[in-house]
Simulated assay, not measured.
Amino acid sequence: MIAHFARLVNPLVSRRRWAGQEHIPKTGGVILVANHTSNYDPLALGEFIIWAGRWPRFLGKSEIWNVPGLGWFARKCEQIPVFRNTDRAINSLVHAEEALLTKHHAVAIYPEGTITADPDVWPMTGRRGAAQLALKTGVPVVPLVAVGPHRVLGQKNLEFGKLLGGRKPVSVMARPALDLSAYEGAEPTKEVLDDITELILDTLTEMVAEIRGEQPPPEGRYDMRLGRRVGDGAVRPE
């Protein structure tokens, strides 16, 4: 029902352009790492993933599960809550690991941990959760990006007025799985996890740049804690 709802609604508010669906494996556990630009991302990315032949299990902030109606949908669709900034945060990775290795699901995760605060909507610094999951499970890690969802519904804040401005261009693209063979069997040290996180975010940034036909900011990634771009790392301290 949700898949067909997205199929019906998305064309009303966006002009969609897709590329690279063939890079999403049809079977087996897979981690889908994506940039996060808007509250509209799950609809834009979800439709792309579903019509590539997989049902995505998104890791999302636990507050969603408290929203009437939306929380019910999240539970029914087997999405995975993340209890951010609590001692229960690690539980999301445990559930994601089970989904990947036991149920062989497709798990979608935003390495940035939240909607980007970059004023120009580039991927910002991230968290180590996606890297931890990749290292522990060894399943393929497929990068995908969406460019344009913030034009439909706003960036950090919901802007419903944008829905009245006509259909907005939204591009979704996937690339082949990342080559993480250099880290096979490695201990999950801070340095290793930071390296993998940087590789993920570098790849997502390159993909956004390709779609936008622009160069990423030379001063580096935006760090929401500092309120500026930094060039000395991809990871925000936990």
Rank of each mutant, 00 (worst) to 15 (best):
M1R: 10
A3V: 09
H4E: 14
H4R: 15
R7L: 06
L8E: 08
V9F: 11
P11N: 08
L12S: 04
V13P: 01
V13K: 03
V13W: 04
S14G: 14
S14K: 02
E22S: 05
E22V: 05
E22I: 00
K26L: 11
V33I: 14
H36W: 11
P42W: 02
I50Y: 12
F58I: 11
G60A: 15
I64C: 02
W65E: 05
V67F: 10
V67E: 08
P68N: 05
G69M: 09
L70D: 01
G71D: 03
R75E: 10
C77R: 10
Q79L: 12
Q79M: 15
P81H: 01
P81I: 07
P81D: 02
P81R: 05
F83M: 03
F83T: 04
N85S: 12
N85M: 09
D87N: 13
A89K: 07
S92T: 06
L93A: 08
A96M: 01
E97L: 06
E97H: 14
H104K: 14
H105L: 05
H105P: 01
A106C: 11
A117L: 13
A117D: 09
P119G: 07
P119Y: 13
D120Y: 05
V121C: 09
P123H: 01
P123C: 09
M124Q: 15
T125E: 11
T125R: 15
T125G: 09
R128I: 04
A131N: 06
A134H: 04
K136H: 13
T137C: 08
T137R: 05
A146Q: 13
G148K: 02
K156F: 13
K156C: 01
F160E: 00
G161R: 13
G161V: 07
L163E: 07
G166F: 13
P169V: 14
V170Y: 03
S171L: 07
V172H: 04
R175M: 07
L178E: 03
A182P: 02
E184K: 12
A186D: 14
E187D: 13
L193P: 08
I196N: 00
T197P: 01
E198D: 15
L199C: 04
I200L: 06
L201F: 05
L201E: 10
D202F: 07
L204R: 01
M207V: 12
I211N: 08
G213E: 14
P217N: 10
E219D: 15
G220A: 07
Y222W: 15
M224E: 03
R225D: 07
G227S: 07
G227R: 05
V230H: 02
V230E: 06
D232S: 11
G233F: 03
G233R: 01
E238F: 09
